[in-house]
Design a protein around this nucleic acid. Structure first.
Lengths: 341, 341
DNA sequence: TAATAAATGACTAGCGCTGTCATAAACTCT
DNA sequence: AGAGTTTATGACAGCGCTAGTCATTTATTA
């Protein structure tokens, strides 16, 4: 039932140390011994005992994912991607939902790292944007990867996976412009999330490129919530000069805007086009369905974890490209911005 | 930095064996020595090395949660509840998203148990309803708790946490009846999920109690999806005798029905009342917001994990009530079933 | 107070693996 | 071919803890 390293060793006719070498990618193993050992491993279906490995090496085979995101779909996708990478490398994922705004958050993260003896951490917003967390982790020398909003790799962002919200927002705005809209409003997300700023910048850049002067009244501050979208849209539609299109910082806000439009008897997309961002499931379940931008979250998370493992494993080949991955969310056109006849 | 059991022992002025006794709930420890040891543990912030414990005792301190549920909110809530319980008992949660319909699913679960050396498993639908999984787990003697739909505890369901969908559905139907509706249709979820059957039964029981004959055309088979709700509602509204209210098996279906009603220019709730089930976030983000039933998922999951620990820990007191918890989702009334004037 | 029961400690042997270091085998180079 | 050097492999201790065995101390009861 239980296969140990000894079984593998005798099966392969080598010492257990050699099996250990193979398991850990250590150099100085001849090709044919390597193969012999691998054959034995496969034959016996050997699975190393993580606890023993852990204890003996004082290395750890788990990474952590801290989240505080009201968006369950995002979290599920992220953890799915990390899990995929973990399975591939024989790591375990320790998830830790918490409150990013709690005053003791840095200590909490540190405690988690120690208690679960983590080998590294993947950080998504808002944690990836908190300098105190990054500092604390650097101080204790724990490898971590941040998934953040950004378009240009830079040495400062060396341990980051970038999601190019700017370009994606540019594309969405452009789509609206191509539809003939010129009075396009923007509903912001939470100010402290850099994604909101990046998306706003992309929107502004697209307008600027067409030579359209930005109307400050068309930029409505808010937060990443349905309610915020409701309020924002109501506010916009009370303006003397109303927008003909709204670009909401995410789908939830867009859904709120849609809801408000319904309350005000405004026809979508005839009288008002609305676009979201994220391609969350309910962007398909509003009426009409939302034009949005799709983030490949599973892949993003997978890459982030892979990157983390490269910092985590002592003997892994570092030959793989170490450049920072940049993901650009893709435009998904649906009926909420259909061509107005 | 690193506190070992020896440190605790000398701090408390006892032998390491006694500390070990305390850590493992072994009998034969006097109250005051227990307290002394606990004090030392707290003072030194001692955290036992899980790997060493694991290795030495060949016990495991992680439980697993397998999921295959398109409903991210459900999954997030469940894992949150389990995590709460895990933290309390010093366990770790290993999550494992997978495909319940994959042919090798039983083996996959078994592999997971072995590979991650799980101490137990919490099963939610659809896994909690798969007899082959339960059998396989029983065969290897792994403790597991199932969260399933049901209203009456029974010995056969000894390791279950019950969610009383029947009663909740009864309540929703009753709410509709009290509003004066008599032609109430039911949109089913997936047939293989027992929750769908339970909810249907609750609906039927409520009608029967009022002496309303069930109209077979008002019961529409389907699945737990938005699309299914769209189709179901369309089908219903083409009937010669249309229903005045629809009870959808979950919020997603209800959202689909809402969407279809919109397409057909049917006013909600004036011409048609719609109720969902689940109280998922988007039940608040439709227009109008949905009447639904709220499941306390976090609490349910927590209890399930607690129950599991009782089977897992060798020396834990079994004095706590061992009766099966039954949770009844509560009615949440919103505008989709407002009183029609 | 003796007799019995309960609590604690000293000691030991691992759990399954990795790290260190010594040794054996394989290559160089003259 | 043999000395020198590199590379591959093995022997052995020990990671931090649990669990068992006894011996010993302390509390409880008759």
């Amino acid at each position: 039932m239980k296969v140990t390293i000894n079984d593998v060793a005798s099966q392969a006719g080598v010492s257990i140390k050699t099996v250990s070498r193979v398991m850990n990618n250590e150099p100085s193993v001849r090709k044919d011994t390597f193969d012999k050992v691998m054959a034995a491993i496969n034959e016996l279906q050997y699975q190393p005992n993580a606890a023993a490995r852990n204890l003996a090496s004082s290395r750890s085979f788990s990474i952590g994912y801290i989240y505080d995101n009201p968006n369950a779909y995002y979290v599920i996708d992220m953890q799915r991607g990390m899990l995929d990478a973990c399975r591939k490398h024989g790591y375990e994922l320790i998830i830790h939902p918490t409150n990013a705004k709690s005053p003791g958050i840095v200590q909490e993260v540190l405690d988690l790292v120690q208690h679960s003896r983590l080998a590294g951490l993947v950080l998504t917003p808002p944690f990836s944007e908190m300098p105190n967390i990054a500092q604390a982790l650097e101080k204790i020398g724990l490898p971590f990867i941040r998934i953040i909003s950004g378009s240009t790799p830079s040495p400062k962002l060396s341990n980051c996976v970038l999601v190019d919200d700017f370009t994606a927002a540019f594309k969405i705005t452009n789509h609206l412009l191509e539809l003939g809209h010129t009075d396009i409003a923007f509903l912001c997300g939470d100010e402290e999330h850099s994604s909101s700023g990046e998306r706003l910048a992309g929107y502004q850049a697209a307008l600027a490129k067409r030579g359209i002067a930005a109307n400050p009244k068309f930029i409505v501050p808010g937060s990443y919530s349905f309610e915020s979208g409701v309020k924002g849209a109501e506010q916009l539609m009370q303006l003397a000069k109303k927008p003909s299109a709204i670009f909401a910082c995410n789908d939830e806000i867009a859904a709120g805007a849609l809801f408000a439009a319904r309350l005000m008897n405004i026809a979508i997309p005839k009288q008002l086009a609305i676009a979201g961002f994220e391609n969350s499931p309910f962007s398909r379940q509003t009426w009409p369905p939302l034009t949005t931008a799709h983030q490949p979250n599973v892949t993003i998370a997978q890459q982030a974890a892979e990157l983390l493992f490269r910092h985590t494993k002592p003997n892994a080949s570092k030959t793989l490209s170490d450049k920072q991955p940049v993901f650009i969310p893709e435009l998904v056109v649906r009926e909420s911005t259909a061509v107005s006849e």
